[in-house]
């Protein structure tokens, strides 16, 4: 058990839905990551996801492509992200999940990566370009350090694969709401509902958290009955982009609080 599993289990006992918020590390400025994390926490998020910027993020839409690009220009690196996590751990015990592409892990050294996760207080890892078939070594290395390996399932995932993903995921299963890349969208589609109903029937072990395209309180309300929690990223990045530097933290806190209300009321 780590912070992530403990948190999700206690939420489940309280019959509450999890709110996971994604922020690209180092965006929009290096020195903003910590204040934004504090704002996200204050707004009532349960899980913090920090994005590891990659030059070629092929599972991401324009919003996260942009934030990744800006963060790289700001000089973010994986080592700096681990320092950020260490600093967060001086004031917060929220579960922290890193989301990044396979090449970032390989270049850092995957064994060293999980050792650093353990040392700095990371609880889980999401790698959008690592399908389960290629993940054997990563799963074993993560397990050794008690880091959750969160796999993604999508509407095109067969029932048989859903079982396999459930078997090997720890923490939660990340349900991709649509066939598509990350990015805020206008509506929750009927495809999403169908997929979540199917997943709920098959997935036994893991909580289901839904991400990709979830952007508003209305989305949260509409979807909460079909899952154990939601993940919001692009909508938050867009909000940060639109905010004046002075108002950024306040806007982020209010936005997260609104999502929280959507899930709780």
């Amino acid at each position: 058990m780590n912070r992530l599993t403990t948190k999700l289990q206690s939420l489940q006992k309280e019959k509450r839905k999890a709110l996971s918020i994604f922020l690209t590390a180092g965006f929009p400025m290096m020195e903003k990551t910590i204040p934004l994390v504090k704002a996200i926490e204050k707004g009532g998020a349960d899980i913090l996801e920090l994005g590891i910027p990659f030059s070629d993020p092929l599972a991401d839409g324009p919003t996260i492509q942009f934030s990744s690009h800006v963060a790289l220009e700001n000089g973010i690196t994986l080592s700096k992200i681990f320092s950020i996590v260490k600093e967060i751990r001086t004031f917060s015990e929220k579960p922290i999940v890193l989301m990044g592409y396979m090449n970032s892990l390989l270049a850092f050294g995957s064994e060293k990566f999980f050792a650093s996760c353990f040392e700095c207080g990371v609880d889980g890892i999401i790698i959008p370009d690592l399908p389960i078939e290629e993940a054997e070594e990563i799963i074993l290395q993560a397990k050794e350090k008690n880091i959750a390996t969160i796999f993604l399932a999508s509407p095109t995932t067969t029932n048989e694969r859903l079982k396999l993903l459930d078997e090997h995921s720890t923490g939660f299963l990340y349900c991709v709401s649509i066939t598509g890349v990350t990015g805020a969208r206008k509506n929750i589609s009927s495809q999403t509902e169908k997929f979540l109903k199917r997943a709920k029937k098959i997935v036994k072990k893991n909580p289901l958290l839904v991400g990709f395209g979830i952007s508003t309180k209305k989305d949260a309300q509409q979807i909460k009955g079909l899952c154990d929690g939601i993940i919001v990223g692009s909508a938050l990045i867009n909000l940060i982009r639109e905010s004046k530097a002075r108002e950024m933290e306040k806007n982020v806190c209010n936005f997260v609080r609104e999502l929280r209300t959507g899930l709780d009321e």
């Binding site: 370009d129 399908p131 993604l152 095109t156 995932t157 067969t158 694969r161 991709v176 066939t179 598509g180």
Partner: peptide, 9 residues
């Protein structure tokens, strides 16, 4: 195969 899950099928 290092691709998003959606493409596996």
């Amino acid at each position: 195969r290092f691709v998003p899950e959606t493409l596996i099928a």
